[in-house]
């Protein structure tokens, strides 16, 4: 293939992925709000409310505070959204292999995931409001705290693959797809991986800054913190970034823990079904969306409904002490399993 064709394919792929992620993310947000409302004994907004919110925000004026640094303040939301969409390029979406899988692996994803947080911190500091500064400080602390358990999980599995499948690239999502972790682990490793899954779900909640970890935003304490000064188009972009996050982070969990597709199973049990390649693709993408939704319901809807907001020191203690300990135990279990000690 010519270089131009690759470039064109990349651009079109990015556009399609971006639009898919935004539309799907906003729908997930709608479902999340509806379910959360039902859990709280309310009716809740209609499912298309997030779309309306974005439309309304885009119509509104974007106010620039007097003390703000304009170029940082205005670019933070764009960087945040762009970084999140680019994460998607390195992730397999159901049956579709990662668009840029060849040029980046898990390390790139981990780095790209930090960028939205940093953009929010910089944007918060640059808006020149005391509430936003406090929010940015809190976001910084939170960012540092959840990174530790997250990288621990990823590197444990990378190490595991380097032992069990030395021929495959250990840090590629491709490997996770071809040899699912559950297939190589024994009982001890199974328990370890389950602990990792729970830890990763809690990290996801923190990464999405939802209650109990919505500390940088904390409406009643610091008036939406980082976003205190953001309005109009800028705030809409942050809103979209939040929606895309609701696809990206579950997609990572799916890539690591549940890289299964539905169509092979279907064609095995129902051999009479007319399964063309395109139908199989569609089924698998729908299955992927279902998995994303389920993970969002557990990690976002349930979490933000069933708990009170923590204080920043309590959140740090949870991530660094409790989750780190759980992670170490899980790591030892997986290691023992892979090395054949147990």
């Amino acid at each position: 293939m010519c270089e131009l064709c690759t470039l064109l394919a990349g651009i079109i792929g990015t556009l399609v992925l971006g639009i898919f992620a935004i539309a799907f993310g906003l729908s997930v947000k709608g479902i999340d709000r509806k379910l959360s409302a039902r859990m709280q004994w309310r009716i809740g907004p209609p499912l298309r409310q997030p779309f309306r919110d974005v439309r309304k925000l885009l119509l509104k004026q974007s106010v620039l505070p007097k003390n703000a640094v304009p170029w940082i303040y205005n670019s933070a939301p764009v960087i945040s959204l762009a970084a999140l969409i680019s994460v998607l390029l390195f992730l397999p979406i159901g049956p579709v292999p990662a668009l840029l899988g060849a040029s980046g692996d898990i390390i790139v994803v981990l780095y790209l995931l930090i960028i939205p947080g940093i953009a929010m911190i910089v944007g918060g500091f640059s808006s020149g409001s005391p509430f936003a500064s406090i929010g940015a400080q809190r976001e910084m602390v939170l960012l540092i705290s959840y990174e530790l358990p997250l990288s621990m999980i990823v590197f444990t599995f990378a190490w595991m693959y380097s032992i069990v499948a030395p021929s495959l690239p250990a840090l590629s999502f491709e490997t996770f797809g071809t040899v699912p972790i559950w297939s190589v682990l024994g009982p001890a490793g199974f328990i370890g991986a389950t602990i990792f899954l729970v830890v990763l779900l809690i990290v996801t909640t923190g990464e999405m800054a939802k209650v109990p970890f919505d500390i940088p935003e904390a409406e009643t304490e610091i008036a939406e913190g980082i976003f205190a000064e953001y309005s109009g188009r800028n705030y809409a972009l942050f809103y979209l970034a939040d929606a895309v996050k609701m696809v990206v982070l579950p997609a990572i969990i799916i890539a690591i823990f549940f890289p299964y597709n539905l169509s092979p199973l279907l064609s095995e049990y129902f051999p009479n079904l007319p399964m063309s390649d395109w139908v199989a693709y569609g089924v698998d993408i729908l299955f992927f969306m279902l998995k994303v939704l389920l993970i969002d319901i557990v990690a976002v809807t349930f979490m933000r409904t069933a708990f009170a907001r923590m204080k920043i020191d309590q959140a740090v203690r949870l991530y660094w002490f409790h989750l780190f300990t759980a992670g170490i135990i899980a790591m030892l279990l997986v290691a023992a399993d892979v090395m054949g000690v147990l």
């Binding site: 309310r42 809740g44 409904t305």
Partner: peptide, 25 residues
């Protein structure tokens, strides 16, 4: 943590809200 089980129970209950004058604005 009683809320953990409570929210799942309430999820399948009819919402408490009175629908007056219409379900959605």
């Amino acid at each position: 943590m009683p809320a953990i089980t409570e929210v799942w129970k309430v999820l399948f209950k009819r919402p408490f809200t009175n629908r007056f004058p219409a379900k959605y604005a």
